[in-house]
Structures are given as structure tokens and as C-alpha cells.
Design a binder for these strands. Structure first.
Lengths: 202, 202, 202, 202
DNA sequence: TATGAATGAGAGTTCATTCAT
DNA sequence: TATGAATGAACTCTCATTCAT
């Protein structure tokens, strides 16, 4: 069994990613972490702060992924392929991450921005800035059709992420359990790569 | 000024779509509706129930839109165009709806299914079922590339909906305020229609 | 259908005699009286006051009975017989009265005294005082064994009244429904008269 | 000073036996128990439940008394003597018990029955059943006059219990404070034993 | 580190009462 | 008289947080 702090963080992620900050209960987190409630305050001093630590951990892991990818020198096609493959695979295994961030975006839209500023600090051009530049370059080179980098990125992220949030809708419409469909996420990757390439590359 | 019940529903949507059921405060709803807190219980008997009524109202409006569209006899191309146009326009004006449902899907994934069963009752084949059939038909006729109706629908909905949820991410990356960008949603519609047609039609 | 005020009093007795002043709900009284809640305040100005009116009505009816009996010139034996007959018959038909007063005695032991003072005013010697005197007289004449008028009265009232309060105990012990036992209260009268005469007369 | 849980139970008995469930105030109980209001919920989870625990405690103590007495092999005479002595002495010291049960019988007549079923479980014949049998036996043996065990028991309990409920009436009639009368309950025992023996034994 | 008990600030809910019509 | 809507105070209950050990 992992050490106490680790167990708390794990239980907290489960709780926050389902209930949000307001709906989460310290008591429940403690119980699921098999620990006395007071220990949570001993380690993290407040619920707020525990939330922050969980959130930042999740964001670091999620945005760290892209960060790395962006820094590689690749063409648009390879980027789309890799991006989709990496993301969907990663998020499928960490669906709590998506929910945690989705909830936080709704409750506190400014958090992401704040996180970006802290996370990339003065090396903004190594993250978002770099991406922005690349997309423009690809367009100039004639690799991609979409002239607007903003729409370009929205398209990619939408196709990569929304499936994890909208699952209940799809499951209701098609009367299936998505995570029980054999090879679903492999198919998802194919479908997304396909539409992205056909739809956005020249 | 609208009557009290209406004002409550309006304020409640604002509150729930930002805070979720657990985080919402009855007091705040009352204040924003300019009524006495007790009136909320007079009309809706509990916070839970108020939530339910708001949620079902929102779902009816959102899913009612498609419901109508699906029942029209159109080819795949027109469907993609209309669907995108209608949805993005509608959701841009009712962004609280998206947030409300997104929050609810995370907290209570079973709700959507329950709603569908109540909403479409025994006329399931006029809603989801009909859609499912149409997609298959389009594929058989060779109108579309994507053979899997599930992926087909996920692609459409992702591109239509996620922009409203992921806004903070895009705003952080590009350092813009999306709702202040002149003609943004018109561009979004164009971009989505474009990628959908190029990426999924034959 | 009786007029509104009457209906309210009737419904209030039912409510108060089951729930007491604190537990009674104005709303419920109104509903059972088939009347708008506000009318109760129109007629009785407050819940407290309605309670008072009901209580005093009940007490007048109950204590009025004895009052009359006492003023008759009878020996001890006839007194015991009449008293028991009158009381048990009357209370069996008005069991709410007993409950109402029992609840009130527990909640507010001083009420009875206050009522007595108002009810008998300066003619105390026509009520309690008279009774007291008679018992002493009977004892002097050698009609009764019990020398203490207090115990004498407690015995009588206990045997006449408690059956209506303790019903649930008896029903649980004997697994019966007392009010459904054919001729129960007639038997009760016989049993009480018997024990009183054998036990307290010379 | 007793521990918190004990103090709560004690204060709760005081409160409930005066106000009933509906009229009782958690705040008052807390204050009288010298603890924080929240502790009541910490230990008992709800006012309802606290009430239940108090009630069942009281019932156990009250009915436990008889339970023991009944199981002893005695004739009718000794039974009447012991019963009266034990009960009046016990109840005089625990007048809250009587009030608590009296209030509950009025509010919720079914509780006693439920309690009996739980308390005596499958050993019903060791409690009520046993008593019933004994009374019948005494009658057959010619020890008692009253042929109906139901009336027999009602007579005993009425004379033993009602004095504690009807106190305000007696105090009003005789203008005394019963608990301040020197030796009152000893006299009461004598009076009751006397009337029971003369009135019901052969 | 770890725990059970304790606290205080509110949260949702109820309810007697009043108001406008 | 009669009604539905409105109000404010009070009530039960919850929860993050702290304390004593």
C-alpha cells in the first residue's frame, strides 16, 4: 500500500473529478484513503489546497505531454497522428484527469490561464507560442488548409477530448457501454486521424 | 419583470451551470431571482427538485433541436451543414446549457440515459434509433466514408460542442477572449462544416 | 358542512390532541378543515390562541360534567356509580379530549390550575371545594374507608381515565384492538364500579 | 461529569419528556448537556434517532421491571403488593419516564407494540404471555374476583401510573404540590395496595 | 504521525404569520 | 370572507477545520 500522502492524492482525484471542489467531501476522501480525516489537514492544510495540488498535478501531466510533442521537429501530418495517438491513449487510461479539468474549467475558467502562466513561466514560446508558430508555418508551407491556427487547434482537441466527456450521451444514443466495446479507443484513434488528415491537410 | 417561478428557474440555471448541484447555493439563487429564499421551496419543494426541473428543461431544449432535424428527409451533406449551423448558433447563445449538462454528465452519468428513456418513451425510433438508421443508410448509399455510426456521431458532436467547454484552454493558449472575437462562431461553423465534409463524405 | 370556524375548531382538536401545540401544523389543520391557511389567522389570530380556545373548550366540557354531578346531593355509593358511568361513557366518545388534556398537562402543568381559577372563579366552593368537603363528610359518616380525600379522588380518576391513555400498552400486551372489542366500555364501567365499591366503601 | 454521550441522553430525556419529539429543540438539549450542538449529530446522527434511543432506553427500563417480577412464582396477593411497591417507587424517582412514554403513546400509538415485538422477540411467553396465563390461573384457583385479565391489568396499571400524569389536576383540585407532601408516595402505595386487595381478591 | 472528539459557520428546509388582491 | 404569494425567524443538519492526547 502506497504511503499516506500518495493515497490521499489518489482518493482526492477520484473525489474531485466526480464532485468538483464544492461537492467533494473531505470525509469521503479520508475514508477512501484509509486515513483519519485530520491527516488530510496535517498534510495539505486545507481542502482548497489539496484541490490545488491535485489539479496542478493533473494539468502538469496532461499539458506536459503536448509540450514535449510540440518541441519535436515534425510536419503537420506526423503531428496530427502522434498527437491523436498519444492523447487518446493517455486520456483513456486517465479519464479522471479529463473530468477533473473539465469541472475546473466550468467552475473556475481563469485557473487554466493561471496555470499556463506558472507552468510555462518565461518560456511561453516553448509551449503555446511555439505551437502557434508552427501552425502558421505549416499553413504558409501549404501543408494545411485551415488558415486559422485557433480553429485548427480547436478541431484537434475537440476530436481528441470530447469523447471522454460526452460518453453518457453516446452511450444513451447507442445503448452501449463504451469502455466495454472491444478495441473502441483504437477505432477512435483511426477515425480521428482519418478525419483530421482528410479534413485539414492539403 | 417575469413572474417569480420564471425568475427562479433562470437564476437557478446560472447557478447550477456554474457550480453544479453540490456547489450551488439556494441563497444565491434567491438573491439573483430577487425573491425570498423560502419561495424556492414553495415552488420547487427542494434544491434537488429545482435542479431536476432545470436540468430536464435544458435537456428538452437541447435534444429537442436535433430530434426535429433528424426527422427531416435529407442527405448526409445537408445534415452536416444544418446540424452544425443550428447547434453552434444555438449553443453560443445558451452556453449555460452546455455547462449544465456537462457538469451533470460528470456527476451523474446515468441521468442522460434516464432522460432519454423518459423523453423518447416508446418513440425511440423517432429519435436516436432514427439517426442510427440514417447513418447506416448513408453509408450503404456511399454518401459517407465512416462506416461506424458511433464514430460518425462522436465526430460531429465533438466538433460542435467541445468549443464551449474547452474555451478556457483555447483562451489560455492563444491569449484571446473567444466571445469577443468578431464573427468567431461564424468562422467556427465554417471550419467545422469544412472538416466534416472533407473528412467524412465521399 | 358546518361553518368555517366550527370546522377549524374540529380539525384543530384532532391535530392538537395528536401532536401537541409544538408538533401541530397550521397547514394541516387548514387542509383538514378545507379552508385556506390564512383564514385560521383571520378567525383566531394565532396558533397559540387557537390552541387556547380548543383547550378551554375541551376542559369546560370535561370538568363541566363533574361540576354538575358534584352539586347533586348523593351518597358515596351513588356518586361512584354515576361518576364512573358518566365519565367512561363520555370519554370513550371523546377520546381526543383526554389526549388533548394529557398532552397539555405534560407540556404545561400550570394550565389546569389557571383554568380552574378562571372557570370556577369565586365560586370555588361549588366545584373542587365542594367535592373536598363531601368526601370528608362521607368519611365522617363512615360511608368510605379511605380517609384521605386526595387518594380517594386519585383512585377514582385513575380508574376512569387511564384506560384511554394507556390503550397502546394494553393492546400490545393482549394483542387486541380495544375499540373493536364488543361491549368493552360497558365491561370497563362494571369492573371499575366494582373495584371502587369493594375497595373503598365500608 | 459524565461523558458527552451520557450527558446528551440525559438532557434529551428531560427535553423529550416535556416537549415530545416535535416540540423538542436540539439546541436546548445541547445547551443542557453542555456540548456543541453538532455533537448530537456526531453521536446520534439525527434528532429522530436520538429520540428513538432515549425512548427505547426508557421502555427497556420500565418494562424490564415487570418482566422480572412476572417471572417470579407468587400468588396474586404478593404480586399486587410487590408490583405496586416497585412501580410507584420506581416511577416516582423517574417521572420523566412516564411522561416520555405517555407522550409517545399519544403521538405514535404503534411504537409500544413495535417495541414489545423487538424486546420480547420470540420469548413473548416470558413477558406478556406469561402474565396473561398467570392471571387466568389465579382466577381459576379462586384467588381473584375479576375474570377478565384485561380489566385486571388495566386496573393495576391505572392505579400505579396515572397519578404521575394527572398530577396537575390533583394539584389544582386540592391546591397542593404533590411532590412536596411528606410521605405522599408511601401513602399512595398503601392506598393502591388496599383498594386492589379489597377490590379484586376474593 | 495518528485519532476521536469538538467547534462554528453556514447550508437547506420548515413554519407561523402577513400581504395584496 | 377568501386566496395564493410572500416573508423572516428559527430549526435541523452538514462540513471544513481544529484540539487534545
Amino acid at each position: 500500500m502506497a504511503d499516506a500522502k500518495e493515497r490521499i492524492l489518489h482518493a482526492a482525484l477520484k473525489e474531485f473529478s466526480k464532485e468538483g471542489l464544492g461537492g467533494a467531501r473531505v470525509e469521503r476522501i479520508a475514508k477512501n484513503a484509509c486515513i483519519n480525516k485530520a491527516m488530510i489537514f496535517y498534510y495539505f492544510s486545507s481542502k482548497q489546497n489539496l484541490y490545488r495540488e491535485v489539479l496542478y498535478g493533473v494539468m502538469s501531466k496532461i499539458f506536459g505531454q503536448v509540450s514535449e510533442l510540440i518541441s519535436q521537429e515534425t510536419g503537420a501530418e506526423v503531428f496530427l497522428e502522434k498527437m491523436t495517438e498519444i492523447y487518446i491513449t493517455f486520456l483513456a487510461k486517465n479519464q479522471d484527469f479529463v473530468r477533473m479539468i473539465a469541472l475546473d474549467m466550468i467552475r473556475n475558467p481563469g485557473n487554466i490561464d493561471r496555470f499556463f502562466k506558472e507552468f510555462f513561466e518565461d518560456r511561453f514560446e516553448k509551449g503555446p507560442g511555439l505551437l502557434f508558430g508552427k501552425v502558421q508555418e505549416w499553413y504558409k508551407k501549404g501543408e494545411i488548409l485551415e488558415s486559422d491556427p485557433l480553429q485548427f487547434i480547436i478541431n484537434i482537441l475537440s476530436l481528441n477530448i470530447f469523447v471522454f466527456i460526452g460518453k453518457p450521451i453516446f452511450e444513451a444514443i447507442f445503448n452501449v457501454k463504451i469502455d466495454e466495446i472491444e478495441g473502441f479507443y483504437q477505432n477512435r484513434i483511426k477515425s480521428v486521424v482519418n478525419i483530421l488528415k482528410k479534413g485539414m491537410l492539403k
